[in-house]
Amino acid sequence: MQIRLFYPFIKKFGVMAATAIIVILLYQYYGALEYTTKNLSEFFRLTLEHFFLVIVSMATAASIGVSLGIIMTRKGFERFGSAIMAIVNVWQSVPSLGVIALAYAFLPLVGLSGIGVVPALVALFFHAVAPIVRNTVAGIQSVSKDVIEAATGMGMTPNQILFRIEIPNALPVIMGGIRTATAIIVGSAPLACLIGGGGLGFWIFTGIALMDMGIMMAGAVPVALIAMLFDALLARLERIVVSEGIQSGEYQEA
């Protein structure tokens, strides 16, 4: 009976702890730790580049994605909505590697370099924007018609309704989209090094090329940790910005 009390804790922390121990052991076993300490300054540079890629593409995707989503729910724009949505959905079904390759191939056509940080950012942005737009639209559409009618009838202007009612009530869904997008970006960011975008992907692909598990893990483990870090941060942020009145139960971190 007693052990039952601990089930939730075992479920929550046990799996995490076990994974962490296995990863640390492997990390040590394959010499990733040794490789990292030997190349510490490069490690810091790659990590910084990685953060840069994630944060910049994330911020652009979130601001443009949310704005686009909001515009699509405004009166008169609904008919463009489904068209934009279709494009966005098709775009998202292109694999990450494909997006990177397309950026490499097509950016030169508009006069930009196909190599370097910019095409990497463009590729990540395009890949992440879809779930944000989709969730913003879904979130705003999910706000009850009665609530909107009450607000209109009381004499709130469309802008007041948007900022005081629609967005706050859609926030949980919008934040969900941003978290999905972040997972996609963090997961795709290592591919950026293929077109010279830098980041921890450099060690991963070097490791694969040299068939050296150590180098590969020296890149892969920090990438995984960054992914978890961003998700935890966003979960925290979500709890701060979403009104208590619409938060439902426990939030999942990690």
Partner: peptide, 9 residues
């Protein structure tokens, strides 16, 4: 209104 429409947030 019938369905009240209080602002949940």
């Amino acid at each position: 209104i019938q369905n009240i429409g209080l602002f949940p947030n």
